[in-house]
Design a protein around this nucleic acid. Structure first.
Lengths: 202, 202
DNA sequence: TTGCGTTGAGAACCAACGTTCTCTACAGTA
DNA sequence: TACTGTAGAGAACGTTGGTTCTCAACGCAA
């Protein structure tokens, strides 16, 4: 059977999507392979033929999350022209995310806290993800002509906003982070001679 | 019974200390009651007579962590006179913590990520803890005569530094957060007329 | 139709864990 | 010495979860 022109969707994709949702909502260890199986609508056998074990599924989920985050951020930033606004778009992107139903913080931080001590792979991948975000930010900062030392500061604001919004259960942190970022950027602009004047505020 | 002048230490304290160390190092779900029992050197019976279940032990550990954090921060801040420096002492306190062996991020964020979805008590307590930190910061900001809107921004920097330092495995984030805080404070000082001049830098 | 290979449903297996229970040792009292 | 209550050591119980195995259904080629 299954000569259907469209095999619904790639089963591996279905599994990863289902697992991602469950892991994020409940925590990874709280989700059994059986839950994933049920949510994805595949047999256990198939599940284990697609992913040799839970660890491997977790990594696949993290890879998917990383791709979605990176693409989403890139898209949010690319839609904007002005360098300063491009940097601030990061926090608007966060604000949208925080307002989503079921927002529960950064999946990588959560996974790191839960599995980091027992799974070097997870810990390493979380590190890589954060590093990649910092690189993205650093590129934007450089593009805008600011000193690169601004990048880690902006990154810390973004990280802090994520955990704060998660624990408070409110998206306010995105706004606070944005305003702090504006200040830091303005100061950087006023110190940096090679930058188009954009401190005509405040 | 127990006519010993010194009962070694309060067994409940020993249990909480041992559990705290294990939970923080390995993640809460990764630690069995048996591990706690062994590390604390008490019998299972005694363990369960002191704490009716693992949930209750987890809460006790969080309460202890909250007390230690709050006292440590208060002490770090109180040793300093100048209002601006008092605010920055928060980040020096973080820097010391990050440099400790086995630093693995904020225990409340970790617990929230791991148990938040399944334990409202843990989620609530994490919220309370962060709220209390924000209140401490807000008091320092008010004391220094700055606008209160500075407080959440400084809090976000502190949160971001914690997760960044944890995942990167390096204490650098404390320095970045401190420098960002300096900038934010300087700007706040330059805007706020009712503040002793402390922007004679940069 | 017969045999073959694949797949799905779920039973089964095994280990880990939270919690309770049993049994023994022993301190204190008469 | 006998009695009682308490506490420790750890066996036992029930559940859960990761993983594997069984078996029956089915598509397909001869």
């Amino acid at each position: 059977m299954l000569p259907r022109p469209e095999p619904e969707v790639d089963p591996a994709q279905r599994v990863v999507d289902a697992a991602d949702e469950l892991f994020y909502a409940r925590g990874i260890r709280a989700v059994g392979m059986d839950d994933v199986r049920t949510a994805a609508g595949v047999s256990l056998k198939r599940l284990y033929s697609l992913f040799p074990g839970k660890d491997s599924l977790v990594l696949a989920v993290l890879r998917k999350r990383h791709a979605m985050w990176t693409e989403g951020l890139t898209a949010a930033v690319e839609s904007i022209e002005e360098p300063r606004e491009r940097l601030l778009a990061v926090y608007d992107y966060l604000a949208e995310w925080f307002a989503e139903d079921g927002f529960r913080g950064c999946g990588f931080i959560n996974a790191f806290g839960e599995l980091g001590p027992t799974s070097p792979e997870v810990a390493d991948y979380a590190r890589e993800h954060k590093r990649s975000f910092q690189d993205q930010l650093a590129a934007l900062v450089a593009e805008a002509g600011f000193d690169v030392s601004l990048a880690p500061q902006l990154a810390i604001l973004a990280e802090g906003a994520q955990t704060t919004a998660a624990i408070e259960g409110s998206p306010d942190a995105a706004g606070h982070a944005r305003r702090a970022a504006e200040t830091l950027i303005d100061v950087a602009a006023s110190l940096d001679p090679g930058v188009s004047d954009s401190r005509s505020r405040r």
